[in-house]
Simulated assay, not measured.
Amino acid sequence: MHELILLRHAEAVPIETSGDDQQRPLSTRGQQEAQAAGRWLASHGVRPGRALSSPARRADETARLALAALSDAPALQLAPEIYDASPGELLALLDQYGEPGTVMLVGHNPGIERLVALLVEGRSDEFRGMPPGALAVLHLDGALEPGNARLDAFWSP
Results as ranks from 00 to 15, higher is better:
Leu138Arg: 04
Ala37Arg: 03
Glu99Ala: 13
Met1His: 09
Leu115Phe: 01
Arg24Ser: 09
Ala59Asn: 06
Ala143Phe: 02
Glu33Gln: 15
Arg123Ala: 15
Ser53Asp: 06
Ile82Thr: 12
Pro132Thr: 15
Ala42Thr: 08
Arg50Phe: 02
Gln22Glu: 15
Arg150Gln: 14
Gln22Cys: 12
Ala56Tyr: 15
Gln96Trp: 05
Glu33Asp: 11
Leu151Asn: 07
Phe154Glu: 04
Leu67Pro: 10
Asp152Leu: 14
Arg64Cys: 06
Ala149His: 05
Ala56Pro: 10
His44Lys: 10
Leu119Pro: 03
Arg57Met: 12
Ala10Lys: 01
Leu151Asp: 08
Ala92Met: 06
Arg123Val: 11
Glu61Phe: 04
Gly45Ile: 03
Val13Arg: 14
Arg24Val: 10
Gly101Leu: 03
Gly101Val: 02
Leu115Cys: 01
Arg47Pro: 05
Pro132Ile: 08
Asn148Val: 01
Ile5Tyr: 05
Gly88Glu: 14
Ser53Ile: 06
Arg150Trp: 09
His108Arg: 08
Pro48Ala: 06
Val106Ile: 12
Thr62Asn: 01
Gly133Glu: 02
Glu3Leu: 01
Ser53Glu: 09
His2Met: 05
Pro131His: 07
Glu61Cys: 04
Asp95Arg: 15
His139Pro: 00
Met104Pro: 02
Val106Asp: 08
Leu105Glu: 07
Ser71Gln: 14
Asp72Arg: 13
Glu3Met: 03
Gly133Thr: 02
Val106Phe: 08
His9Val: 02
Asp21Phe: 11
Val106Thr: 12
Gly101Cys: 05
Ala69Asn: 07
Gly129Asp: 08
Leu91Tyr: 09
Met1Gln: 02
Leu41Ser: 04
Leu7Ala: 04
Pro110Lys: 03
Thr102Pro: 00
Arg128Ser: 14
Ala79Asn: 10
Val106Cys: 11
Pro100Cys: 02
Ile112Gln: 12
Pro14Asn: 13
Ser53Trp: 09
Ala136Ile: 00
Gly129Met: 08
Gly88Leu: 11
Gly19Thr: 06
Arg29Cys: 08
Ser18Met: 10
Arg128Gln: 15
Arg8Pro: 05
Gly45Tyr: 01
Ile112Phe: 04
Leu76Met: 11
Leu4Cys: 06
Ala69Trp: 06
Glu81Gln: 15
Val106Arg: 08
Gly133Asp: 02
Glu89Ile: 04
Gly98Met: 00
Gln31Asn: 01
Leu144Ile: 02
Glu61Ile: 04
Val103Glu: 10
Val46Ile: 15
Ala66Gly: 01
Thr62Val: 00
Asp84Gly: 14
Leu135Pro: 00
Ala85Arg: 05
Pro87Lys: 06
Arg150His: 13
Ala51Lys: 12
His44Cys: 05
Pro157Gly: 02
Leu67Asp: 11
Glu121Leu: 14
Leu105Lys: 06
Ala37Cys: 00
Leu90Asn: 03
Leu105His: 09
Glu89Thr: 14
Gly49Leu: 07
Val103Ser: 10
Gly45Ser: 08
Asn148Ser: 10
Met1Phe: 05
Gln32His: 12
Ala153Pro: 09
Asn148Asp: 02
Pro25Lys: 09
Glu99Met: 03
Asp72Thr: 10
Phe127Ala: 15
Gln32Cys: 01
Ser53His: 07
Leu93Glu: 14
Ser53Leu: 05
Pro132Arg: 13
Gly38Lys: 11
Ala117Glu: 01
Arg114Asn: 05
Gln32Asp: 11
Gln35Trp: 00
Thr28Asn: 14
Val46Lys: 07
